[in-house]
Design a protein around this nucleic acid. Structure first.
Lengths: 200, 200
DNA sequence: ATAATGACAATATTTGATATTTGTCATTCC
DNA sequence: GGAATGACAAATATCAAATATTGTCATTAT
């Protein structure tokens, strides 16, 4: 086993690179193997199918780009503020990718279209983070006594306009920042405990 | 000028029919002309291009399917109730089309994809209706003193999850009704004047 | 023994020659 | 005269043959 042993990690890195250079339509597993200097049969020793490789690449990418969210969710800001920060960060992460490198964003969008399973896991993960912030808000008395998990879904649904990749074409519009702020204000107000006007 | 004179209306009806039978990919203007028993050149006397014909068909369809909304918007139910009814009707109209006849829904979705202009007009129209309900709610004291037009957009954005056709694949899920109700409740609560808990 | 290879069958994609469709307009019809 | 036609050029779409890709596995290399 030398330092250039063929590992899933090395294959993933190569696949990501090939995908970035060739796009989702053109990237083949032969290309990935070639980039690693091995035969494509060897790749199949580590990933059962092209779909499995695709899923793994998508998972890694999602984990990497959503990392800042976990930090905010675990933070100690007051829950209403934390919820604002978290939703703002989710929006920014997506928007920066979409506007900063539209091709790559489209590439991962194409991957996601065929990986419903991975996406469901991902959404479930995000929902858990929102849920923990809401639970904290209920405990602190900032929010009404709502069901945290159900409300997390409601918040996620309500902000779809600003995080669903299929709507990325709207994210460059002029009024976008104001529209987002207005929505968050309305949601936080709807969540606020009586007599505790929304923080901020 | 006899009773079977070639009019834009007759062409529109034929186009709609051809579109329904052949789908958006296969329907040609020769097909439309044939259905009318005229040459395709004659169609071009009434519509400048295939795109113009397509836009007209889409406009007629949107007008027809959204007709119930105007009635609700003009109704005299208390504004919070009216807003609930209106948003519920918007959701239902879309969902019924999407689940009831998926092919036709996909057909009009395809038309819409190439008719950004028509869609913008349409959204503007809906926004106006929401706006008038909100203005009524502010006047009646049920809602806080919000900017009706800006808030109308916020409400439209917040409900994207339930009316954007690109998300139709989610509309058959089990928890869907509950999720929608939860969202509307949260929005109405966020809109309610202090001391006036959300009407039911 | 374990890892890697490459030949292979079954699909899927690309290509490019052929056919259709769009949009125009000079001519015909009533 | 105004409405309709159909022949036409240019732009698009279609389809079948040629090529490439996926996934397997018996064989080879270490």
């Amino acid at each position: 086993m030398n330092e250039s042993a063929l590992t899933p990690e090395r294959i993933l890195a190569a696949a990501e690179d090939v995908l970035r250079r060739f796009g989702p339509g053109k990237a083949t597993v032969v290309d990935v193997a070639q980039a690693l200097g091995v035969s494509h049969g060897s790749v199949y020793r580590h990933f059962a199918s092209k779909a499995a490789l695709r899923d793994a690449v998508l998972r890694v990418w999602l984990e990497r780009t959503m990392a800042p969210l976990q930090i905010i969710a675990n933070g100690k800001a007051a829950p209403p503020t934390r919820l604002r920060q978290w939703l703002g960060a989710l929006r920014e992460a997506k928007r920066d990718k979409a506007l900063g490198d539209p091709e790559l964003f489209a590439t991962y969008g194409a991957l996601a279209a065929d990986a419903r399973e991975v996406i469901n896991e991902h959404v479930e993960h995000l929902r858990g983070q929102i849920s923990s912030i809401i639970a904290a808000g209920v405990a602190s008395g900032d929010f009404r006594k709502v069901d945290a998990r159900a409300t997390a879904l409601t918040i996620f649904d309500a902000t779809t306009r600003f995080h669903y990749p299929g709507l990325a074409h709207l994210w460059g519009n002029p009024g976008e920042d104001a529209a987002f702020k207005q929505l968050i204000d309305l949601l936080i107000r709807g969540l606020a405990a009586d007599g505790k006007p929304a923080a901020r």
